[in-house]
Simulated assay, not measured.
Amino acid sequence: MSGYPPEITERFHGSPEQLEAGLVGEVPQRWQSIVVEEYDPAWAGRFDAARSALVEAVDVVDIEHVGSTAVPGLAAKPVIDIDLTVADSADETSYVPALLRLGYRLVLREPWWHGHRMLVSAEEDVHLHVWPPGAPEPVRHRLFRDRLRTHPEDLELYAQAKRRLARDTVDRPGDYSLAKNDVIDAIFAKIFAAGPG
């Protein structure tokens, strides 16, 4: 027994068809190629700047820097991933207009995935994931981030997989995220086996 409820331990693996169905408007240009760079300490400052603008613009329930750029020492695409929890992600009128004024644009609407919405910054260097309260995915994002921050062997395992998959999917960049599921699931198995700390 992991000590985590099933809604946390049972990951949703979307399909390319679901991603396509959720697309709103044009696919971001940065999605056309995968570039994995060595860790840049400036990524933390980029999150801080984005966070400051977001908390002034919308009614934030929670906001977290997640993804690879949130893990010191981890190679990553130079795109800041942010989990933004709002009172109701389905009520787009309560936050999307303010985010549009900040230069973001809505690119994904995935109500079947815990009410997920995704916006990208004007430069496409911030991925803003919007969730309702209680969505399990932000919890998993934090668990994964924190595991990599505290377990160098898993950080290295993930970094190697990311570099290899970036090379292997160079002609199919849309496959990159789905191709990481095996290594992500292996690391989550360790997280769930250890249980809440």
Rank of each mutant, 00 (worst) to 15 (best):
G115T: 02
V55E: 12
L23V: 07
A194Y: 03
T9K: 03
H141V: 00
A193M: 04
R142F: 00
G195Q: 12
L165E: 09
D91Y: 05
A42W: 03
S68I: 04
D154T: 04
L108C: 06
I8S: 02
T150E: 13
H13S: 10
Y104L: 05
P28E: 10
P133V: 01
H114M: 09
A186L: 11
Y176A: 07
Y176D: 06
T85D: 00
E37S: 14
I80T: 13
N181F: 12
A57S: 15
L148Y: 03
V126G: 06
M1C: 06
E38R: 13
P16H: 09
L99H: 03
L106C: 06
G14M: 12
H127D: 15
A21D: 12
D146I: 04
Y176V: 08
A87G: 12
I187Y: 06
W112K: 14
L165Q: 10
V170G: 01
H13A: 12
F144K: 03
S52H: 14
P196A: 15
A50D: 03
N181V: 07
D91L: 10
V24S: 15
I187W: 06
Y39K: 13
V24C: 09
L106M: 14
E137F: 00
W112R: 14
L157W: 13
G195E: 11
D81K: 04
E92H: 11
E56H: 06
Q32F: 06
H151I: 10
L19I: 11
D146A: 09
E64W: 01
R117G: 02
A193P: 02
V61P: 01
Q160F: 15
A53L: 07
M118Y: 05
K190L: 15
L54V: 00
V58Y: 10
I63S: 00
A21H: 09
A189R: 13
R109I: 03
E38V: 12
I191Q: 03
M118P: 02
R164P: 01
D40M: 08
V35R: 14
D182S: 10
P152A: 15
H65N: 02
L84I: 00
G115F: 03
P133Y: 01
L178F: 14
P97W: 04
T169A: 08
P111G: 08
R142E: 01
A166S: 11
G73R: 11
R142A: 00
R30W: 02
P28T: 09
A135E: 00
A194T: 10
A53R: 12
G197C: 06
G197V: 12
H151W: 05
S33W: 08
A189E: 13
V107W: 06
G22T: 08
L106P: 01
V61W: 00
